[in-house]
């Protein structure tokens, strides 16, 4: 079946199976920043924005995305680049497998809250497992980023 989505501001039409998951569809079409880590919507590496809301795409049927606005990290490149700088300054980037998903959640957090507290940030990070950093450097980097831009 055919489906139409707006991905990062561009109209895309894909041929899909009805039982296909959005993470697989996106990866197949070279949106490789959308990663798969757990298959149970626990880890956050497949996070994308659907109509500006963070969603784990590994449990989202592609058919449900008909006509929706999809954002992957490639769609927020400037923001991701700035966040990368903050991660770099805090030593928060290690293996990086979780980073594009975090960038999208941080972007959504910025859209949703005026001045997020550390508590807000930690709450957002619960959906993004990281086995490398111990989280504290990520929290500092995100605070630095939000302070810079909000």
């Amino acid at each position: 079946m055919k489906i139409e989505m707006n991905i990062n501001g561009r109209k895309r039409i894909f041929d899909i199976r009805p039982d296909e998951l959005l993470a697989d569809t996106l990866r197949r079409h070279d949106y490789t920043s959308v990663r798969k880590g757990c298959d149970t919507t626990s880890c956050g590496v497949c996070t994308i924005l659907i109509d500006d809301e963070p969603v784990p795409s590994c449990a989202y049927l592609t058919v449900r995305a008909e006509g929706k606005k999809i954002t992957t990290v490639e769609g927020i490149a400037e923001e991701a680049e700035r966040l990368a700088g903050c991660f770099g300054d805090e030593g928060a980037d290690q293996c990086g497998f979780c980073n594009p998903g975090i960038a999208l959640s941080v972007h959504a957090l910025k859209l949703s809250a005026k001045a997020p507290t550390e508590e807000n940030i930690r709450h957002y990070l619960v959906g993004h497992l990281c086995r490398c950093s111990g989280y504290q450097s990520q929290v500092k980097a995100i605070r630095r980023y939000l302070g810079d831009t909000t």
């Binding site: 990866r27 197949r28 070279d30 949106y31 490789t32 920043s33 959308v34 990663r35 798969k36 992957t72 990290v73 490639e74 490149a77 991701a80 680049e81 966040l83 990368a84 700088g85 991660f87 770099g88 300054d89 030593g91 980037d93 990086g96 497998f97 980073n99 594009p100 960038a103």
Partner: peptide
């Protein structure tokens, strides 16, 4: 304190990991 040399490209989602480079 020097930023990691690859942090930017990784955050921006560039293809990098093993499955990203698998032949289609």
């Amino acid at each position: 304190r020097i930023r990691s040399i690859d942090g930017k490209g990784i955050m921006m989602g560039r293809a990098a990991y093993t499955d990203d480079v698998a032949p289609k």
